[in-house]
Simulated scan of single mutants.
Amino acid sequence: MDVDKIVINKLKEHSRLSADDITEIRNFNFAPRELADQEDLIRQGDEPDKSVVVMSGWVARYHLLPGGSRQYLSFHMAGDWPDAQALFLDRMDHAVCAIGEALVAGIAHKEMTRAISRRPALGFAIWRETLIDAAIFREAITNNSARRKPARMAHLFCELFYRARALGHVRDGQLQLPVSLIQLGETLGMSIATVNRTLLELRASRAADFRSGTLSVHNWSRLCALGEFDPGYLHLKKQPR
C-alpha cells in the first residue's frame, strides 16, 4: 500500500478528513528508509526535522537507562505514526528503534507545517494522533504500576492485538509480533524468569499464547477480562472486527 493511503487510513480511524485534507496528504513528499533490527531511527537528545510513518515491520519507543538497559514505552506497527509528536518538540526525550527489519517513510516538518497552515483540520488530526499516544503512555503507567503481572501482560497483548485488528494486521487470530522475551520484560518491568512464569499462566488460562514472535488469541473476551482491558483510551471511531 502507498504511504499516503496508509496515513489517510490511520488518521481516519480517529478523525474526519475532507477531500481537500486527503489531497493535501497525497501531495506530501515521503522519503522511504529501511531499518535493520535494533537500528535507531531517533536517539534521545536528537533534534529531528522530520516525522515518519511505519510502512512495514515494527518500531518501538524506549528510554535508554544509565546502565545501558532499556525501558520500552510503546510498540508501533505498519500504519502507525510513532513520532508525529516530534513536530511539536525541539529535542527528543526518548529514542525510537526498529524491532526486526522495518521500512519507514519520513516527511519534513517544514512541509507538514505548511500543510497544516493550509488545512487546519489536518493539523487537528495529527494533533489527535499525538494525544492518543499520550493516552497510551498513561495507560502503560497504570498497567505497570497497578496491575498484577498476569493482568499486566494480558493488557499489553490486548492493546497490541486490538490496534493491529483496526489496521488489518491480524490473520486467523494471530499477530506477528517480533518482540523477544527480554524486550517483553523491559516493557513490563519483569525479569526474564518472571516473563516465562507469566506466559505459562497466560497459556494455562487458554485465553492467549505468545511463542516465537507470534501472538495467538484463543479467547478474546477472556483475555480482556484477565487484562482489565477497556479500549476507550485508544479513541478509535469504529470497533475493529
Rank of each mutant, 00 (worst) to 15 (best):
V3I: 13
D4L: 01
K5W: 02
I6C: 03
S15V: 11
S15A: 12
S15K: 05
R16A: 04
R26K: 15
F30N: 03
A31D: 06
D37W: 10
Q38V: 04
D40L: 15
L41M: 08
G45L: 13
V52N: 11
V53I: 15
M55E: 14
S56E: 15
S56Q: 12
W58N: 08
V59Y: 01
Y62Q: 09
L64K: 06
G67E: 11
Y72L: 12
S74L: 09
H76A: 00
G79S: 00
P82F: 10
D83C: 13
Q85Y: 01
F88W: 09
F88R: 04
L89S: 07
L89V: 14
L89F: 10
D90P: 05
M92F: 01
D93S: 04
D93L: 09
D93F: 06
G100F: 00
L103K: 12
L103S: 13
V104S: 01
A108E: 15
H109R: 12
H109D: 14
K110D: 14
R114P: 06
S117V: 00
P120Q: 12
A121Q: 15
G123E: 05
G123P: 05
G123R: 07
G123F: 03
R128M: 11
R128D: 10
T130I: 06
D133L: 03
A135G: 02
F137C: 01
F137I: 13
R138K: 05
E139I: 00
A140R: 15
T142Y: 04
N144S: 02
A146R: 07
R147K: 11
R148L: 14
R148M: 04
P150C: 12
P150T: 12
P150G: 08
P150A: 08
R152T: 08
M153Y: 06
M153H: 01
H155M: 14
F157P: 05
C158F: 09
L160Q: 15
Y162N: 07
G168T: 12
V170L: 02
G173V: 10
L177P: 11
L181P: 07
L181N: 13
L181V: 09
Q183A: 15
L184D: 09
E186N: 09
L188F: 03
S191P: 10
T194W: 10
T198L: 11
L199P: 00
E201N: 06
R203V: 04
R206G: 05
R206E: 14
A208M: 11
A208E: 14
A208I: 14
A208W: 14
G213L: 07
T214I: 14
V217I: 10
V217Q: 05
H218Y: 11
H218V: 02
N219T: 11
N219S: 13
S221A: 13
S221W: 03
L226Q: 00
L226D: 05
E228M: 10
E228Y: 01
F229K: 11
G232R: 15
Y233G: 05
L236I: 08
K237H: 07
K238V: 01
Q239P: 04
R241I: 09
